[in-house]
Design a protein around this nucleic acid. Structure first.
Lengths: 347, 347
DNA sequence: AGTGAAATTTAAAACGTTTGCAATTTTGTG
DNA sequence: CACAAAATTGCAAACGTTTTAAATTTCACT
């Protein structure tokens, strides 16, 4: 037991070759004789030689890792996409022989400081930054450092270019409005969050733009804001919108979790979805398929996005392209049963 | 832009000290004068010095990483616990300054070969192994290598000791039986999987043991087996159990996803849960709370388990304890609305 | 056999740390 | 003020790889 790991020196000695030759042979350099390359490859395979990552990283300056910083939010809060996201990243990375580093920012510790540490310790060749905030110091830092990164999400405006991939929430929310409008709805509700993430603006603006495009002055939009991670406050906010006879007939939620709360509270208030109230979400989380009557939402295909982000990042690391790579993904409508014609009684 | 990263040599030069002294000062060695230690710490902080991981790993033999190998199963299959699991691992690791490496085993590539690579490249100081199979070559390999690891789950029998943490599925399934028996159920169904994972035996055996303990010959147990990742076959299997008038009055599913399928198919067959049929799952995934009427299940608290696994692994890495660390976690019953008294009409 | 070019191999430096051991400085004591 | 002991600091090797520049071998051709 406790078998030692074989090193390049030992492998070279066993082949009666120099370290240099073996290293080059394994790297497939043309200058090493074909015969030697095969002999070395064979011996390496048989000896189960695996190059030491630290040594390789040290000399080459490339770690073969991509970093992702994971914030801890609280005892009961887990990023609902994390599983899909890291799976997608892993898929994208593995085809290029790269792996993922997950660094955790402990509760109360700045995500930025962890990011700095990952970057400056040379652990990663590039990083993925998610959940872009309105003023995001992480992007500014990475930009200043000239460190390869891809953002999942966008800034609202920026005086510099950067690589990003985003889901077109603006478009989706416009589509949701159009669909609901055509179903006769005129009084809309939007449940949004107070956390200063850029996507809340992109989606809300997309909704507002669609309303403006329609140019129907009878359209009304009520907006209610809830803290993202406070379930109780979220329920209160939703009920604020649901109470009173002058409530919206269609509610669009910034994301599925909020939409599910809307459906739960609607049920509790004796409202039938979609007869009395249409509800549309965004993200298509697993629970949305199960929550009665089945939430109509948009599928953001996180896993696919993550895979593309990995591809983009590896390209950025490899080629350092002069122009930023950007990609806007169109989410697809998943029409379940939570939306329908506007109730006849009112309007 | 493209700011260079400061190195120990530069930091030492700026302080007019040797590399050795600075290194020791930062490591807090007693032999360095208190005054010097402070001066160095101050300068390091101000210069934003972060030690290079590769260099440190190379010389110390410790990477400060813990590895987890992630299998890719197919386009639409993501480990439902992955998010919670890596969050928990991250939480457990961060307090000790360690980070997580997620290595992906591409579709068609052996998980073992990726594990070997992680281990032998020196990327990680220890690994977490999940989803233990009946004959698991990964454990044998790690054991032979003498490499620190903690298994999430257990082997059924083994001729060697190893560190593991498991959720006591056997106990939970016994508890489920007892509860259902006391509600008058006598005809039981178990939906299990064909994938050769050890937990299917542990849980099924727990159920069988509880039945035996009760010693009531009128108790019947039907078992149906479905492939884990084939939704269509799974539905067929469930329907095999549901069809016919002589169906069970209470079905226990190996895990929530199966239980949800049971509830869906029951609804499709016009059966009311829990009036006509009681269903109990295991895991308490998010969707279980939403699926009507609310699935009764056991909460495995994956995140908490992962955190403990991280703690255990770090202890194994640090102390190399002589006796294996083992931990059996009791899942807690989440009593929702999918179980109830046995229907009167039959029995 | 001798030559030069091409093909193949190697020695040695470098990457940025940690650490055993030695060197230097400071301190305490007579 | 000398001297040993204690405290503090520094030199140099080592970790396992990649890579530059140089050395060696092979080969075709005269």
């Amino acid at each position: 037991m406790t078998t030692r790991v074989i090193t390049l020196k030992e492998l070279a000695a066993s082949l009666d070759l120099s370290i240099t030759t073996v290293s080059r042979a394994l790297a497939g350099h043309e200058q090493i004789a074909q015969k030697t390359r095969e002999r070395v490859a064979q011996a390496a395979r048989q000896a189960g030689y695996v190059p030491n990552t630290a040594a390789r990283t040290l000399v080459s300056g490339r770690s073969g890792f991509v970093g992702l910083v994971l914030p801890i939010r609280g005892p009961n809060l887990v990023d609902s996409f994390l599983g899909e996201f890291v799976t997608g990243l892993g898929e994208g990375l593995v085809s290029h022989g790269a792996d993922l580093i997950l660094a955790t920012a402990a509760l109360g510790h700045s995500e930025l400081s962890v990011l700095r540490h990952v970057v400056e310790s040379g652990r990663a060749d590039g990083v993925v930054v998610t959940r872009i905030a309105e003023t995001d110091e992480r992007l500014a830092y990475l930009r200043e450092r000239g460190f390869p990164f891809v953002a999942h999400g966008r800034l609202l405006d920026s005086d510099f270019g950067y690589n990003w991939l985003d889901t077109d929430g603006a478009h989706a929310f416009g589509e949701a409005f159009d669909m609901l409008y055509d179903l006769g709805h005129r009084h809309f509700g939007l449940v949004t969050i107070s956390e200063p993430m850029t996507f809340r603006h992109l989606r809300q603006d997309g909704l507002a733009a669609a309303i403006a495009r329609r140019g129907d002055p009878s359209v009304r939009l009520d907006v209610v804001t809830a803290p993202r991670f406070d379930q109780k406050a979220r329920i209160e906010a939703v009920n604020r919108m649901l109470q009173g006879s002058d409530r919206p007939t269609a509610i669009v939620a910034l994301f599925d979790e909020l939409a599910l709360t809307v459906m739960e509270e609607a049920a509790r208030a004796g409202l039938s979805v979609p007869r009395d109230l249409s509800v549309i979400g965004f993200d298509n989380i697993a629970a949305s398929a199960y929550a009665p009557p089945g939430l109509t939402t948009f599928d953001a295909s996180i896993r696919q996005c993550a895979r593309e982000i990995a591809d983009m990042l590896l390209r950025v690391i490899g080629d350092r392209p002069a122009v930023p790579l950007t990609r806007l993904i169109q989410p697809t409508l998943v029409a379940r049963a939570s939306h329908g014609p506007a109730p006849r009684t009112r309007n």
